Amino acid sequence: DHWEIRVGDITIHLKDVDEEIIRWVEEALRNGDDLEEIKRWVEEVLR
């Protein structure tokens, strides 16, 4: 699977990601969370 999350001008590409993570990231972006923080979290989860 390949996911693209778009929020404003930001697009995040994710592969082999659980839908729950996608929802979490979308929510975090909508809440204005720091992008670097989100990326770190996702990388942590995917490890």
Rank of each mutant, 00 (worst) to 15 (best):
D1T: 04
D1P: 12
D1K: 04
D1G: 09
D1C: 10
D1F: 05
D1A: 05
H2K: 06
H2E: 07
H2I: 11
H2Y: 13
H2C: 08
H2R: 09
H2P: 06
H2A: 07
H2S: 08
H2T: 04
W3V: 12
W3T: 10
W3F: 12
W3Q: 07
W3S: 07
W3K: 06
W3P: 04
W3A: 08
W3D: 06
E4C: 06
E4D: 04
E4I: 07
E4S: 01
E4N: 02
E4M: 02
E4T: 03
E4G: 04
I5L: 12
I5H: 02
I5Y: 00
I5D: 02
I5G: 03
I5N: 02
I5K: 04
I5T: 03
I5Q: 02
I5V: 10
I5E: 03
I5C: 05
I5S: 02
I5R: 03
R6H: 13
R6C: 05
R6N: 09
R6L: 06
R6Y: 01
R6D: 05
R6I: 14
R6V: 13
R6P: 04
V7A: 05
V7R: 02
V7M: 09
V7K: 01
V7S: 04
V7Q: 04
V7I: 14
V7N: 02
V7D: 03
V7G: 04
V7E: 03
V7Y: 07
V7T: 02
G8V: 07
G8M: 03
G8C: 03
G8Q: 05
G8R: 05
G8Y: 00
G8H: 07
G8K: 04
G8W: 00
G8I: 06
G8E: 05
G8P: 01
G8S: 06
G8D: 04
D9K: 05
D9F: 02
D9P: 13
D9M: 12
D9L: 06
I10R: 08
I10F: 13
I10E: 05
I10G: 04
I10Y: 11
I10H: 11
T11R: 05
T11F: 05
T11E: 08
T11P: 03
T11Y: 06
T11G: 04
T11L: 10
T11W: 02
T11A: 08
T11V: 10
T11K: 08
T11N: 05
I12F: 04
I12L: 14
I12D: 02
I12N: 01
I12Y: 03
I12E: 02
I12V: 12
I12C: 03
I12W: 02
H13L: 11
H13Q: 13
H13A: 10
H13W: 03
H13N: 09
H13D: 11
H13P: 07
H13C: 11
H13M: 13
L14M: 09
L14A: 06
L14T: 04
L14Q: 02
L14F: 12
L14G: 07
L14V: 11
L14E: 02
L14P: 04
K15L: 11
K15Y: 15
K15S: 07
K15R: 14
K15C: 09
K15M: 12
K15D: 12
K15P: 09
K15Q: 10
D16K: 08
D16L: 14
D16E: 10
D16T: 13
D16W: 13
D16V: 13
D16I: 12
D16F: 15
V17M: 14
V17R: 08
V17A: 10
V17D: 05
V17S: 08
V17Y: 12
D18P: 15
D18I: 15
D18M: 15
D18H: 11
D18L: 15
D18R: 13
D18T: 15
D18V: 15
D18K: 10
E19C: 07
E19Y: 11
E19V: 14
E19A: 12
E19N: 13
E19K: 13
E20V: 14
E20P: 09
E20C: 00
E20A: 14
E20F: 15
E20R: 14
E20G: 09
E20T: 14
E20D: 11
E20S: 15
I21H: 06
I21M: 11
I21A: 04
I21N: 01
I21Q: 03
I21E: 01
I21R: 03
I21S: 02
I21C: 09
I22P: 02
I22Q: 07
I22V: 10
I22D: 00
I22W: 07
I22M: 13
I22S: 04
I22K: 13
I22E: 02
I22G: 06
I22C: 03
I22A: 05
R23V: 05
R23Q: 07
R23E: 04
R23C: 02
R23M: 07
R23A: 12
R23W: 07
R23S: 05
R23D: 02
R23T: 05
R23H: 06
W24N: 03
W24G: 05
W24Y: 12
W24V: 06
W24D: 01
W24M: 13
W24C: 08
W24R: 06
W24H: 13
W24F: 10
W24P: 00
V25W: 03
V25A: 05
V25Y: 02
V25C: 02
V25R: 00
V25E: 00
V25S: 00
E26V: 08
E26C: 03
E26R: 02
E26H: 03
E26T: 13
E26Q: 05
E26Y: 04
E26L: 08
E26W: 02
E26K: 03
E26P: 00
E26M: 11
E26G: 03
E26F: 04
E26I: 06
E26S: 04
E26A: 03
E27P: 00
E27A: 15
E27H: 10
E27T: 08
E27F: 01
A28F: 10
A28H: 13
A28G: 04
A28I: 10
A28W: 08
A28S: 08
A28T: 07
A28N: 04
A28P: 00
L29Y: 06
L29H: 01
L29W: 06
L29P: 00
L29F: 08
L29D: 00
L29Q: 01
L29M: 10
L29T: 03
L29E: 01
L29K: 02
L29R: 01
R30G: 08
R30C: 02
R30F: 07
R30L: 09
R30D: 03
R30T: 08
R30A: 12
N31K: 13
N31L: 11
N31T: 08
N31G: 06
N31D: 06
N31F: 07
N31W: 09
N31S: 13
N31H: 14
N31M: 11
N31P: 05
G32V: 12
G32D: 04
G32I: 12
G32W: 13
G32L: 10
G32A: 10
G32R: 09
G32T: 10
D33Y: 11
D33Q: 15
D33G: 14
D33E: 13
D33C: 14
D33K: 15
D33N: 14
D34F: 14
D34A: 12
D34V: 13
D34P: 15
D34Q: 14
D34W: 15
D34H: 15
D34N: 14
D34E: 12
L35G: 05
L35E: 06
L35Q: 06
L35F: 09
L35S: 10
L35M: 08
L35Y: 14
L35T: 08
L35R: 04
E36W: 04
E36Y: 05
E36C: 03
E36R: 10
E36K: 07
E36M: 12
E36G: 06
E36A: 10
E36V: 07
E36D: 11
E36L: 12
E36Q: 11
E36T: 11
E37T: 14
E37V: 13
E37W: 13
E37R: 11
E37M: 15
E37K: 14
E37C: 06
E37N: 12
I38E: 00
I38R: 00
I38P: 00
I38F: 11
I38Y: 01
I38Q: 00
I38L: 07
I38D: 00
I38T: 02
I38H: 01
K39L: 11
K39N: 07
K39C: 08
K39H: 08
K39G: 05
K39V: 13
K39A: 04
K39S: 04
K39D: 05
R40Y: 03
R40E: 08
R40Q: 07
R40T: 04
R40G: 05
R40H: 07
R40W: 02
R40D: 05
R40C: 00
R40A: 09
R40S: 08
W41Q: 09
W41D: 01
W41K: 14
W41C: 09
W41A: 11
W41P: 00
W41M: 14
W41S: 08
W41N: 06
W41G: 05
W41I: 12
W41L: 09
V42G: 01
V42D: 00
V42H: 01
V42N: 00
V42C: 07
V42Q: 01
V42M: 10
V42K: 00
V42A: 06
E43I: 01
E43P: 00
E43T: 02
E43S: 01
E43V: 01
E43D: 12
E43H: 01
E43C: 07
E43R: 00
E44R: 05
E44V: 03
E44K: 09
E44H: 06
E44F: 01
E44I: 08
V45I: 13
V45S: 07
V45R: 10
V45D: 02
V45T: 08
V45H: 11
V45M: 14
V45P: 00
V45A: 15
L46R: 04
L46D: 01
L46I: 10
L46Y: 02
L46V: 08
L46F: 03
L46S: 04
L46N: 03
L46K: 04
L46Q: 07
R47T: 11
R47N: 09
R47S: 13
R47C: 12
R47K: 10
R47W: 00
R47Q: 07
R47A: 13
R47F: 00
R47P: 05
R47I: 12
